[in-house]
Amino acid sequence: MEKILQIKDLNISFHTFAGEVKAIRGVSFDLFKGETLAIVGESGSGKSVTTKSIMRLLPEHNSEIKGGQVLFDGKDLTKLSDKQMQKIRGKDISMIFQDPMTSLNPTMKIGNQIMEPLIKHQNMSKGAARERAVELLRLVGIPKPEIRVDQYPHQFSGGMRQRVVIAIALACNPKVLIADEPTTALDVTIQAQILELMKDLQKKIDTSIIFITHDLGVVANVADRVAVMYGGKIVEVGTADEIFYNPKHPYTWGLISSMPDMETNDEELYSIPGTPPDLLDPPKGDAFAPRNPYVMKIDLEQEPPFFKVSDTHYAATWLLHPDAPKVEPPEAVKRRQSQFPGVKVGK
């Protein structure tokens, strides 16, 4: 498969009054043409910072890309000037933000906000851009787009506003679409419609999607591959089936055990003990060690490398080392494994 985007050993820090926050610590992943890659992890794990660095939307006054590359179309985006990035943002790489109300300008008609990237990046006339705006509103499922194009954001519901944000992001048929928790502010029925819409549109315009979420239920619906983030690092990566039915990292076990499914009885849902690491002073070994019920001495001393589980599945945990003791995953994980033929239970 063709790689459309490559992140290589990315390190990002924020300079604060308290000191240097090492928010991203050596993140690497690839995005392939036409696929949906979900980045999962709890708040503060570094999901949004990673993707905002691709768009170069980090605050200039206190953020610093300390190392690594973001390769797109043969260019390293971390080295481009603001002017060069303006030609890529919205045209080749677009972003759907979490809250549609703050993403839209309340003083501008919806149509004008969709027309803006078309006029800037595709040199369309106002008339042609307006026609395309109506077409895009129809594409994202907004009824009576000829009338709605002249309305303001406050005249739309939350779900409709999110559809408008998607229409703006898709206006120039981007090669990469970054969706930063695009359904968090919506209720479950609207959420399902938006996810369905994104899957449909991806097939129509053959775009690659990076989908950021902390909701594993959403991941099951949209992702081809999943990267699990913790403490500013990727700790496990694999196909959606591998991560859901054969996870290997104790953090992924915790995430999956904390998610109810149709088989869950009245047992209490698992919650991962403790809190995420302080990235002002990152831990020496495995960042997850203080919260890991399977912690070993080496976890506190050395950072684990990635161990290969299959050609598409890798996890950074010492439990996969040949000398590590055999550990049984939690019951919730074993239950999922039994539902999926072809995966091995245990180590």
Rank of each mutant, 00 (worst) to 15 (best):
I39N: 11
I39P: 08
I39L: 13
I39D: 07
I39S: 08
V40Q: 13
V40S: 12
V40M: 02
V40A: 14
G41I: 00
G41C: 07
G41F: 06
E42M: 12
E42A: 12
S43T: 15
S43H: 13
S43Q: 13
G44N: 01
G44I: 02
G44Q: 05
G44S: 06
G44P: 15
G44T: 03
S45G: 14
S45V: 03
S45H: 14
S45K: 11
K47V: 04
K47T: 13
K47P: 15
K47Y: 14
K47I: 07
K47D: 14
K47Q: 14
S48Q: 06
S48N: 07
S48V: 07
S48Y: 09
S48D: 11
S48K: 02
V49A: 04
V49H: 05
V49G: 07
V49F: 01
T50E: 04
T50A: 13
T50H: 14
T50W: 15
T50S: 13
T51C: 15
T51F: 13
T51H: 10
T51K: 10
T51V: 15
K52R: 12
K52Q: 14
K52E: 15
K52I: 08
S53F: 02
I54S: 02
I54D: 11
I54H: 02
M55T: 11
M55K: 02
M55S: 04
M55G: 12
R56V: 02
L57P: 14
L57D: 07
L57I: 10
L57V: 10
L58N: 12
L58R: 09
L58Y: 12
L58W: 09
P59G: 13
P59F: 15
P59K: 00
E60R: 03
E60I: 06
E60G: 07
E60D: 09
H61D: 15
H61I: 07
H61T: 11
H61C: 09
N62A: 08
N62Y: 11
N62K: 02
N62M: 11
N62T: 03
N62F: 15
S63C: 12
S63L: 08
S63D: 14
S63N: 03
S63V: 06
S63W: 08
S63F: 10
E64P: 05
E64G: 08
E64T: 03
E64F: 12
I65D: 06
I65Y: 01
I65F: 05
I65N: 07
K66M: 03
K66G: 04
K66A: 02
G67M: 03
G67L: 03
G67I: 01
G67Y: 06
G68I: 00
Q69L: 00
Q69Y: 03
V70Y: 15
V70S: 08
V70L: 13
V70D: 13
V70R: 02
L71Y: 10
F72R: 01
D73K: 01
D73Y: 05
D73Q: 06
D73R: 09
D73T: 01
G74Q: 01
G74V: 00
G74Y: 00
G74L: 00
K75V: 04
K75N: 04
K75Y: 04
D76M: 03
D76F: 08
